[in-house]
Each structure stands twice: as structure tokens, then as C-alpha cells.
Design a protein around this nucleic acid. Structure first.
Lengths: 103, 103
DNA sequence: ATCGTCAATCGTACATTTACGATTGAAAAT
DNA sequence: ATTTTCAATCGTAAATGTACGATTGACGAT
């Protein structure tokens, strides 16, 4: 990537949707979200058991999902309980719905 | 990425959705698709005029969208006309709809 | 106070992405 | 036949992403 600073800007909706899409752009993360959808919530450890990936890798994926705003972590000592961020989920849903509808 | 060969597999739906999402994971590509949605079709050159990016960069983005199956190029010598791939668009729409609905 | 458990972060290796300019190839126009 | 035009591809540089094991930090339990 050249133009590292002088980068192109797009409409905020477009940028936001791209951020969501990027976070969804890995099968493990989709699978995590599907799991959260069923369970409503779960702990990192649960996921480490489900997926044949290192704990650090799961943690990294969770971080990306959190950064994108799709999930949130609640302290539940000594564990951390992850849930869908319903607020942003609604936003994402609307963005994608609107995007796909127009064709 | 270690495990380059012994990689994790997911359900086909999950993999497919991730492929679509990955292709949507860049604002320029979202913008291209939105443009195609309005225009129904367009030429690479049109996009080069619209976006402040090199021709080769646009071409690369188009290639990714084509690989993901979201667009298709029709020969229209001497130009190439790009359109939404309606078949796969429907598939993608359904995958995302279903995904977001379940929460 | 020490130990065990859980999850984040660090350091690292390698792959992939994103951008550019330059080159190539194919087809239309001269 | 030569030139022009359009878009793909090549080569390259830098950034990001994906995975691992090891370490750290926080907190409960012993």
C-alpha cells in the first residue's frame, strides 16, 4: 500500500459497511458469530474447545470482532463472557440489507 | 499463517459467506458495487475516472469481485462491461440475510 | 501467600492485500 | 501496416492478516 497517508475517503456508510464486512471476512469469525447467535453468549475457553485453534488465535479473532463492534465482552470473573453487540448488529444488518436490496 | 496446509475447515455456507464478506471488506469495492447497482453496468475506464486510484488498482479490485463471483465481465470490444452477477448476488443476499436474521 | 485458571498480549514467521508504475496483449481505428 | 485505446498483468514496496508458542496479568481458590 503506497498512499499510506493520502488515502481515499468514501462515504461513512460505505466505510462502515466495509469495516463490518472485513470482520466477517474470515470463516472462523463467521463461525464464532453463528455460535454466539445460538448460545447468546459464551466464554473464550468454550471457543478454544470448539475450534482447533490456539487460544491466542481465538483471542485475536475475538479482538477483531470486538473492534468492529460486532461483539462485546462482559467481565464475569474470572472469565469473560462474549455476546453479540445488538446495537451494532442492527446497524450492520440494516447496512447489508439495504446494500443487497438495491439489486 | 502457519498450518498453511493443515488448515481448519468450516461448513460450506460459512466458507462461502466469508468469501463474499472478504470481497466486500474494502470500501472501494463496496463503492464499485453500489455504482454498478445504479448503473446496472459499466466499464473499467468509468471507474478509473470516478475513483482517484490507478487503473491497475481498479483492475485488481474488479478481479477480486469477479473471483468472489459478485460481478461478471462481458466482452464489448474494445471495452469490457462489468455487471453484477445476479445469480451469485442472490446467493450472497440470502446468506447475509439468514445470518443477520438469526439474532 | 501460593497456586491454578482464564484470557490478553508479545514476539515471530509467513501469506495476503493494497497500492503504484510499467509492460503487455487484443482489438478498433487510421 | 501502424497507431491508439482499453484493460489485464507483472514487478515491487509496504501494510495487514493469520497462525503459533510463550509470557503476563488478574482474579479466585487453596
Amino acid at each position: 500500500m503506497k498512499r499510506s497517508l493520502e488515502n481515499i475517503t468514501h462515504k461513512e456508510d460505505t466505510e462502515q459497511m466495509a469495516r463490518f464486512a472485513k470482520a466477517l471476512g474470515h470463516p472462523t469469525r463467521i463461525a464464532i458469530l453463528k455460535h454466539l447467535g445460538n448460545q447468546s453468549c459464551c466464554f473464550t475457553g468454550d471457543l478454544v474447545d470448539i475450534f482447533p485453534l490456539a487460544q491466542s488465535t481465538i483471542s485475536q479473532h475475538l479482538k477483531e470482532l470486538k473492534n468492529a463492534g460486532l461483539i462485546q465482552g462482559e467481565l464475569n470473573p474470572p472469565k469473560i463472557k462474549y455476546c453479540i453487540n445488538k446495537e451494532n448488529w442492527k446497524t450492520a444488518k440494516a447496512l447489508f440489507q439495504n446494500f443487497f436490496e438495491s439489486n
